[in-house]
Simulated assay, not measured.
Amino acid sequence: MNSLRRMLDVLDLFRPDQPVIDVEIICQQLGYTPASAYRYLRELGDAGLLVRLPRGYALGPRIIALEHQMTDYDPVLVRSRDLVEKLVAETGLDAMISEWYGDAVVNVLIRRGPDPGPAGGGRGRPIDLFHSATSRVVLAYLLPRQIRRIFDAHASTPEAQGQGLEWKAFSKGLLAIRKQGYCISESELHAGRTGVAAPIFDEKQRVLGSMTLVGRNERFRAFQESYLCNLVTTAAAELTARIAQQ
């Protein structure tokens, strides 16, 4: 299992500024030996997850096939589309479904309202863990030791250190989110935009991700805050019930 995890970690090296990787990049950024790097590239290529190019390796066609499979048949997406569409129709705000993956929260479904704007990291991209309602409402329902590990790992980065994150205040804020059952964020991730998010759980009440309504501050304030909070928490609870019944 450890070897499989190490091999799959190679896929995390791909990003917009690094669309092609090679053995040298794997060794430098993951600390693997050249022999391991060559073996993982070969096995991922044989599985169709990577394709060989003159300058190295890029993501392969099987990634696209899996993305299509997930879009059409993923249980969370299939059971959430009508709920998301209803939220957009009733508010004109953007609505999103995001899932917890590794140590990241990733948007998997985004529906735009009539006045769309930036929505987290976009579909398939990780969202800031500390400055968005979408992520914080997920962190609030993790185990305390998980939260502390994630905080220590991310708060020690140069970017986070410049943001003045402090463990006591952060953990206290998560307790408040858990108590009220939702999280509101105003102009944190994107200036002039406000979001409210509620958690989604699996059949064992483990947090899976979140459902979010987000839009321009002016549009958000056109509604009673309690009304929007009730909308998103009710929809998230309905999705949780549907997941438990599948």
Rank of each mutant, 00 (worst) to 15 (best):
D17L: 07
V20N: 10
A169N: 06
V84P: 10
E159K: 01
L49G: 11
P144L: 09
A35Y: 00
G92P: 14
E159T: 02
L77A: 10
C27R: 05
T71A: 10
N2E: 15
M96V: 12
L142Q: 11
M211H: 02
N217R: 12
M1D: 14
I26V: 14
T91G: 15
K179F: 00
P54Q: 06
R193F: 14
C229M: 05
R42C: 08
T157F: 05
L66T: 01
Q205Y: 00
S98T: 04
R178D: 12
R149H: 13
S156V: 10
Q245V: 02
T212N: 14
D82M: 03
I127P: 07
S36C: 06
G117Y: 05
P126M: 10
L8I: 09
F14Y: 12
H190D: 13
A95P: 15
E218W: 00
H190L: 12
L11V: 03
H131K: 10
L49A: 09
L129V: 12
M70E: 13
V108E: 04
L231Q: 09
Y32K: 09
A160Y: 04
S36V: 03
A95Q: 00
R221I: 03
L41N: 04
P54I: 03
W100G: 09
E67R: 08
D103Y: 00
R125V: 11
T134M: 13
R5K: 09
F170M: 09
R221T: 14
T233E: 14
D74V: 01
N217H: 11
P199I: 05
Q69T: 07
I25H: 04
Q224N: 08
T233H: 05
N107V: 01
A104R: 11
D22S: 07
P158A: 04
R149Q: 14
G102P: 08
V108D: 13
P118I: 11
S3H: 08
G195V: 05
E159A: 11
S210T: 03
A104I: 01
A235V: 01
E43I: 10
R216Y: 10
G209Y: 02
D128R: 02
L142A: 10
G162V: 09
D22R: 04
I147T: 13
I243F: 00
L59T: 10
G215A: 00
A37Q: 09
A95E: 02
P126V: 06
D128H: 11
S187W: 03
L49W: 15
A169F: 00
D103S: 14
S98F: 02
E186I: 05
T91N: 15
V232Q: 02
K204M: 04
R221Y: 13
A37T: 08
R216N: 13
A235Y: 00
A197E: 08
D72I: 02
G215L: 11
K204Q: 15
R145D: 15
R52M: 08
D115T: 05
A65Y: 12
R178C: 06
F220E: 03
L44W: 06
R221W: 02
G92Q: 10
E159M: 06
Q161V: 03
W167R: 04
V23S: 07
E67Q: 09
R6Q: 15
R221P: 02
S36Q: 15
D94N: 13
A176K: 07
V51A: 12
C183P: 05
Q18Y: 01
R178I: 01
P116R: 07
T194I: 12
S36Y: 07
R193M: 15
P34C: 07
D74F: 00
Q224S: 05
A222Q: 12
R62A: 09
L59M: 06
A104D: 12
S132M: 03
L142K: 09
H190N: 07
